[in-house]
Nucleic acid binder design. Sequence first.
DNA 1: TTTCTAGTTATTTTCGAACATAATTCAAAT
DNA 2: ATTTGAATTATGTTCGAAAATAACTAGAAA
Lengths: 262, 262
Amino acid sequence: MTNTASRAPANGKPGRRPRTRPAQAEPQADSTEPRKPGPRGAATGDTATGTDELCARLREDIVRCVLPPHARLKFGDLQQRYGAGIGSLREALMQLTAEGMVISESFRGFCVAPISLDDLQDLTELRVEFENRALRASILLGDDQWEARIVAALHMLNKITHIGPDSSDSEMAEWEERHGRFHEALLSACPSRRVMQIRKTLYDQGRRYRNLALARSGAVEVHAYQHQELANLVLARDADAACALMTSHILEAANNAGRLVD
Amino acid sequence: MTNTASRAPANGKPGRRPRTRPAQAEPQADSTEPRKPGPRGAATGDTATGTDELCARLREDIVRCVLPPHARLKFGDLQQRYGAGIGSLREALMQLTAEGMVISESFRGFCVAPISLDDLQDLTELRVEFENRALRASILLGDDQWEARIVAALHMLNKITHIGPDSSDSEMAEWEERHGRFHEALLSACPSRRVMQIRKTLYDQGRRYRNLALARSGAVEVHAYQHQELANLVLARDADAACALMTSHILEAANNAGRLVD
DNA sequence: TTTCTAGTTATTTTCGAACATAATTCAAAT
DNA sequence: ATTTGAATTATGTTCGAAAATAACTAGAAA
C-alpha cells in the first residue's frame, strides 16, 4: 500500500520546469577515438546513478529472499515496489542476470534464479577456490593498513555479542553487514580486481543460500570463535592454516544451508 | 546521416498500425508467488530478443578491437552504428559492464575496459585455473557424444589449412569461430553451469588481448599441432597431460599478446 | 596573463507511451 | 467431455522526448 508516496526515486524532482531546446547544430566529427587520459582532473564522480542504487536494492532483496527463488519478476509489481521506471528496472535486471542472480527468458520476462543442491555444491566449490586464492594473495601482500582494517572489522563484528532467532530484522541485517565487511577486510589486500569481483558475486550467492535456510529453520549459527581464530592466523601470516580454516568455515555454512534446500 | 532509415531493429516492423486499447480491468491479486513449473509445456523461446543480439554484437566489436580499449561509448554514435534505441543500448552496456568488458562512470557514460600488462597477467592466471578445472571435469565425465563433438570440432578447425596476415577478415573470423568451438567442445562435458559461464567471459577477454596484438603486429600463430595433440590427450583421458598442454597453450598465447601491450 | 564565474552546448539518465509477444478465455465443433 | 482456434487480456519490449548532469566557452576581474 501507499506505493506512490512511500519512496522517491532518490533524486528529488517534484517539479518539472520546461526548457528551451534549440535545434542541434551540424553533426560533430566521429569521436570514437580513445578518451584522452590527459589534463582533465578527477571530477566529483561520487553520485551514484539511480539504476545502480536500484540494482543494489534488488540484489539485496534477492539475497535476503524477500524475492524468493524462482519468483517471477513482473515489471508492474517491481515498478510499484521500487518506484522506478521500466527502463531502469530492465537495466538492473540485465546486470543481475549477468551476475547469475536472475534468469531471463526472451519475451517472457525475468525471474529469480532457482536453487538446488547441485547448484549449492557447485557454488561452494568455487567459493572455496576464490576465497582461498584471494586470502593467500592478501597474506602475501598485505601491509600495516590491511592488518588495521582486519582488526577494526573484527572489533565491529564482535561488538554484536549475541544474535539469535529472537533478534530483530535490522539487528540481523547489521550483523550480516559487519560479517561481510570482516571477510572483505581479510581479502582486501588482494591485488586482482577480477578475483575480487567474482568473489563478491559468489559470496552474495552463498549468502542467499544461507538466508534461505535461515528463513526456513530460524536457526542461527554464529561461530564467533572461528572469526577470531581466522584473524589470528591471517595476522600471523600462516596462509596454509588460514586457508584450511576458511575452507571448513565455508563448507560448514554450506552444509547448514544444504540441509534445508529441497 | 540517415540514421532513421538505415537499419531495422532486426525484427521487421516497418509500419505501425494503431490499436484500440480498452481501459484495463480491476487489478489482479498479488502474483509474486513462485511460478508454477506445472503443466505449461515448453514454448517457442528460440527468438532472441533484440537487446541480446545487440549485446552480442557489441561484445564482438569490443573483442575484435573495432571498439578499441578505453574508447568512449557515446550513445549518439552507438545509436547510429547499431541502429538501436538508447534503452536497448543501456541494457546491453550494463550487461557488458558486469562481464568486465565495459567500464561505467556515473553520469559520464561508458567506455571500453582498458588493458594493461598487469590485467593480462591476472586474466591469464584465472584462465588457466578455469580451463583446467573444466577440462578435468569433462575428461572425468565425458561420454561418447562428447568425444564425437571434439572430433567434429577439430575436423572443422583443421579444414582451414592456412591462415596468415594476408587472410581476409571474414576468413580470420571464421577461423576464430571454429577455434572457439573446438575449445568449447573440449570442455562441453563439464557439468557446472557456473564454471562454464565464467570461463566464457574470461575466454572472450583473452580473445580481446590476442586480437589487439594481432591488429598491432599482423602476426598470426596457429599452432595447429597443439590442437591435434590436445584432442589426442583428452580422448585418451590423460587429464594431467592435457591440462599441462592446455596451460602452456594459454601461457604461450598470453606471452605473444603481452609483447604488444603497452 | 591568469583565474574565476556565468552562460552554453553536449551527453547521459529517466520516464511514459506505443508496439510485440505470450497467456488466457470462451465458444463451437468433433 | 475434449479439443481447436479466435478474441481478449496481460505482460514484455522498444523507442523517443524531457529532465539532469557534466563539459565547454567566453567574458570580466584581479
